[in-house]
């Protein structure tokens, strides 16, 4: 049983870290985003292994189902997906590498060597009558309306602010939008142009400068 859990843990760790490395190493930004989804998924599975069911599901729902979709959408709305012929990294990427490795060493040395983590977790029921000693969705929900009420509301306000902010930032005014005519509109336009030329209205609004069709003809 323990061996099984260890194997699962190592597989998950390999998935999380391998996918993480691919996220920063792959040239094609779409592939990068797909590896990111793989990493998110691995983290969700790790939560499941850590018996945080609710968080695992929320991880899948929020990260895999929403954030990564948002990222994919943003990539597709901006061009240059393949990244061919461009530098992938900044010129001084080695500095970043140095910082990352130093940080890793600085964090991991005391974690592994100077600290003993053999703490026996307190077990036993949370409240009398509760079967397990692990807080689940029920306790979490109760916490959100009691001890963490203010935090919960602040998080809600934050989401609202982010929602409004994102709309305001990404909003495109109607008159600045790129003008692409649909087939039906083009057809209608041609029809109207014929009507106006029949009426000899040479100075119609159709020939106004800047109009896409009048320019092309």
């Amino acid at each position: 049983m323990e061996l099984l859990i260890q194997i699962i843990f190592f597989l998950l760790a390999a998935l999380i870290l391998g996918a993480g490395v691919m996220v920063v190493a792959v040239r094609n930004i779409i592939h990068s985003a797909l590896w990111l989804i793989g990493s998110f998924f691995g983290v969700g599975a790790l939560y499941l292994l850590l018996e945080a069911e609710f968080l695992a599901v929320v991880q899948v729902l929020v990260y895999v189902g929403a954030v990564s979709i948002l990222i994919l959408f943003a990539i597709m709305l901006t061009r240059d997906v393949s990244g061919q012929g461009e530098r992938l990294l900044f010129q001084r990427w080695w500095l970043a590498l140095l910082v990352a490795i130093t940080l890793f060493a600085a964090v991991i040395t005391p974690t592994l060597l100077a600290q003993s983590w053999n703490v026996v977790p307190p077990t036993g029921p949370i409240e009398p009558g509760q079967p397990t000693g692990i807080a689940g969705a029920l306790e979490l929900g109760r916490g959100f309306v009691h001890e963490f009420l203010l935090h919960f509301e602040i998080a809600g306000v934050l989401l609202l602010v982010a929602l409004i902010g994102a709309i305001v930032i990404a909003f495109e005014e109607r008159n600045r939008r790129r003008k692409v005519l649909t087939l039906a509109e083009e057809h209608e336009l041609r029809k109207r142009r014929e009507q106006t030329s029949d009426a000899n209205a040479s100075e119609s609004a159709l020939s106004a400068p800047g109009h896409p069709i009048s320019q092309s003809e």
Binding site: G20, V24, A100
Partner: peptide, 8 residues
């Protein structure tokens, strides 16, 4: 490790 990969 994941944090450092992300940082890089």
């Amino acid at each position: 490790a994941l944090f450092c990969i992300g940082l890089f």
